[in-house]
């Protein structure tokens, strides 16, 4: 009996060591830890803002293409941009919003089209799980038992070696693009991605086509994206307004009218909020894009954000006018 108990005790100790190692000690500072550093900075700014404020959240398109600095100027409402990377998934993005948004605030969700139809299974191969286990453990309970176990047992020896290598590189001074000094505005927008810098990505952007084609996948969706309706309900219950809006796309592709109808319908279910519409569906020539078909270069980012700021002001004004 004693040998069996010893093996059970060793196994339990092994699990404690495993979870302790990957949940507390080991990090990938260049590819996972970076999100914690950037989110912490953005959250701190957002939490310090006066109410009401605008909270903008999407994947990297929101980071590169939307500029809270400009939206705040146009609308007169302070704004924080919580967007970083699509690969973190809807749940992580919305969890970040929940940590910052307060009663009276306005949440803008200019999601990439992929963010609507990529599901949790697609995301598990990305970075959301190691990010959650290492930096946002409180999110685990929202994942349910099966997915929590998936996340907790994400880590293999390859991950351990890669983490050690990244730590060595990070200590040696290596940094990922937006982790460098001066790459973000105070509001959390990416900056410095000028047309001049964009020139080296021109061919890549030109041949990438338009993300508008992805809206066909949204048109095929039967149910709204998992978690969106729950988030809207939570927001409205807390007196937070939620607006969906399109992410910018290259004008060589046409958006699916059925997809647009679905997005209008999903966000239209919000008691406070809806779907913001813009002339031209926020489509631009490829010369407006930076390093991908979803990232606007800085000049266009500012113009685009000006349009959004004005559109939001008009929407808020029409909301405040009494109905005839």
């Amino acid at each position: 009996m004693k040998p069996i108990l010893s093996v059970i005790a060793a196994s339990l100790l092994g699990l404690v060591l495993y979870f302790g190692l990957f949940g507390v000690v080991i990090d990938k500072p260049l590819s996972v830890g970076i999100f914690d550093r950037v989110y912490s900075q953005k959250r701190a700014y957002g939490q310090a803002l006066d109410k009401p404020k605008i909270v903008l959240a999407a994947g990297s398109s929101g980071f590169y293409s939307d500029r809270c600095e400009t939206i705040a100027e146009e609308s007169g409402i302070p704004c924080v941009n919580l967007s970083i990377a699509l690969a973190l998934g809807r749940e992580t993005i919305l969890q970040q919003v929940k940590q910052v948004a307060e009663p009276g605030d306005i949440v803008l969700l200019p999601w990439e089209y992929r963010l609507y139809f990529l599901n949790a299974e697609d995301m598990r191969a990305r970075i959301s799980y190691p990010y959650i286990v290492r930096h946002e453990k409180s999110f685990l309970k929202g994942l349910g038992v099966r997915r929590s176990l998936d996340a907790l047992f994400y880590f293999d020896l390859d991950y351990l070696f890669a983490a050690l290598l990244e730590t060595e590189n990070y200590v040696g001074g290596k940094r990922h693009g937006f982790d460098k000094e001066g790459r973000m505005t105070l509001q959390g927008d990416y900056r410095g991605h000028t047309a001049e810098v964009a020139a080296k990505y021109r061919e890549k952007v030109e041949t990438a086509g338009s993300s508008a084609a992805e809206t066909r996948r949204i048109a095929e969706m039967v149910e709204p994206p998992a978690g969106l309706m729950e988030f809207i309900k939570w927001a409205n219950a807390n007196d937070i307004t939620v607006y969906g809006l399109l992410s910018p796309s290259v004008d060589s592709g046409e958006l699916s009218p059925e997809a647009l109808d679905k997005m209008r319908a999903w966000f239209g279910m919000a008691e406070k909020g809806g779907f913001l519409e813009f002339k031209g569906n926020l489509q631009y020539p490829y010369t407006c894009f930076f390093d991908s078909r979803e990232h606007l270069q800085e000049e266009c980012q500012i113009q685009h954000s000006r349009v959004i700021g004005k559109g939001l002001v008009e929407q808020l004004r029409s909301n405040s006018q009494p109905e005839d």
Binding site: A10, Y18, F19, S31, A87, F153, Y154
Partner: peptide, 26 residues
């Protein structure tokens, strides 16, 4: 046993979960 148990469970039951993160695809 203590050193490998976590990795063994990971490999046997959750082996497909961990894939290389592609740095520039976000």
């Amino acid at each position: 046993v203590a050193l490998v148990i976590g990795f063994v469970i990971q490999a046997v039951f959750f082996g497909t979960a961990s894939e290389e993160f592609i740095y520039f695809q976000f």
